[in-house]
Amino acid sequence: MRRTVYSVKFLGKWFFILPAIIFFIGMVVFPMIWSLSLSFYNWKAATGGAKVFIGLKNFYTILAKDVRFWGDLRFTLFYVGMTVLIELLLGLGLASLLNKKIPFRNFFRVIYLLPMTAPPIAVAFLWRMFLQPDVGIINQLLHKISLPAIKWTTDVSVAPWALVIVDIWEWTPFMFLGLLAALQSLPQEIYDAAAVDGASPLQAFIYVTIPMVMPIIVTLVLLRAIDAFKLFELVFGITGGGPGGSTESLSYYIYTSGLSYFDIGYSCALSWVFLIIVLFIAIFVLRLLRKEV
């Protein structure tokens, strides 16, 4: 409970909170409303066409006819699901293996933090260089040990995985460090108690450790999933959405249809559909994970 000195009646509190709220209204609420109103129009600004009111037709086209949208949605969901799942398993594995007193703790922490502080577009260009099919080092290394070259960015079935690998490189340390912090905050006594009760280390891990760090796991998974949904830079830098649209994320689709083709009405409708999908999934995931806690 707050103390009485911070009483409800103190009007100065508005001085503290209003600047931020006004800023958000100007930069988010207003643009979103504008975007909603534009999504009811057919407005192809590139050809200098006039704004024509077409009601819900944009939304109908997206949901019923737009193959590109559904393909991009499928890829985005694949990307989010795969990266989060693999990073969680790797992070959890590493964190439980290393849940001891770590030598040179700060040194290793700094090393592991490096990929996630790099600008994503720089990471993208770095990896485009490694993944390059002809002269990239990964294929050269594969050649050295006489394995066939992999068409990282030109094969429809490989390219999505190439992006997943880059994401895993960048964000596994985040899961690892977050989970390690959670594991190390648990008191040693609970393990002693579990051991006294005759639990094997594996049983202790499954029945004691996991439930206790579940809230942190939920938080980390949600943060990663929400971040992975925003996928843009890796697509922009590594594949450009190709080959054949197999690695195009929804963010990239909205960006190109809005700012390359200036199909303003349609891209605003796409934005709203995307927002609603993300909201639904966030609520759904939260419910699902809450039940298990």
Binding site: M27, P31, M32, S35, K230, I254, Y255, S271
Partner: peptide, 9 residues
């Protein structure tokens, strides 16, 4: 939310 949804407006 994904920042791209406010990009166009």
């Amino acid at each position: 939310f994904p920042p791209v949804v406010v990009l166009i407006p």
